[in-house]
Simulated assay, not measured.
Amino acid sequence: MKLLVIEDEQSLRENITDYLNADGNICESCGNLEDALRKLTDYHYDCVLLDIGLPDGDGFTVLEYLKAQGKMEAVLIISARNSLDDKLNGLNVGADDYLTKPFHWPN
């Protein structure tokens, strides 16, 4: 499976990427909106793990871009934002699920 992790917190981004790569996936990552949109333009991914709080914009822009381009990547939002409005917005714009931080990896 080819995955893209879009997360601005470097240590979390590296931990997620390392975990997914160790499980046999091809996992790329980036830490801002600009790099995310460039990668999504140039490559196809099976799944995107998306933080909506990015330093140069809102992760919801990624969802809108995927929808506008007719791309079919599955999207899992991982965010510290846990308001009902954010969750509904993410799911309505096209995310497949919404996971709030902090969360725990299996051992």
Results as ranks from 00 to 15, higher is better:
Met1His: 00
Leu3Val: 04
Leu4Pro: 07
Asp8Glu: 06
Glu9Val: 10
Gln10Lys: 07
Ser11Cys: 04
Ser11His: 06
Leu12Asp: 01
Asp18Arg: 15
Ala22Asp: 14
Cys27Asp: 04
Ser29Arg: 08
Ser29His: 11
Glu34Phe: 05
Lys39Cys: 08
Thr41Tyr: 07
Thr41Arg: 10
Thr41His: 12
His44Asn: 13
Asp46Met: 11
Cys47Asn: 09
Leu49Glu: 05
Leu50Cys: 06
Leu50Asn: 02
Ile52Thr: 06
Leu54Met: 12
Asp58Thr: 10
Thr61Gln: 07
Thr61Val: 05
Val62Ile: 05
Val62Ser: 07
Leu66Val: 07
Ala68Cys: 04
Ala74Asp: 11
Ile77Arg: 01
Ser79Gly: 02
Arg81Ile: 12
Asn82Phe: 02
Ser83Pro: 08
Ser83Thr: 15
Ser83Cys: 09
Leu84His: 06
Asp86Cys: 09
Lys87Val: 10
Asn89Ile: 13
Gly90Cys: 02
Gly90His: 00
Leu91Val: 10
Asn92Arg: 12
Asn92Tyr: 09
Ala95Asp: 00
Ala95Glu: 00
Asp96Phe: 07
Asp96Lys: 08
Asp97Gln: 13
Asp97His: 09
Pro102Leu: 01
His104Asp: 13
His104Tyr: 10
Pro106Leu: 05
Pro106Cys: 02
Asn107Ile: 04
Asn107Gly: 13
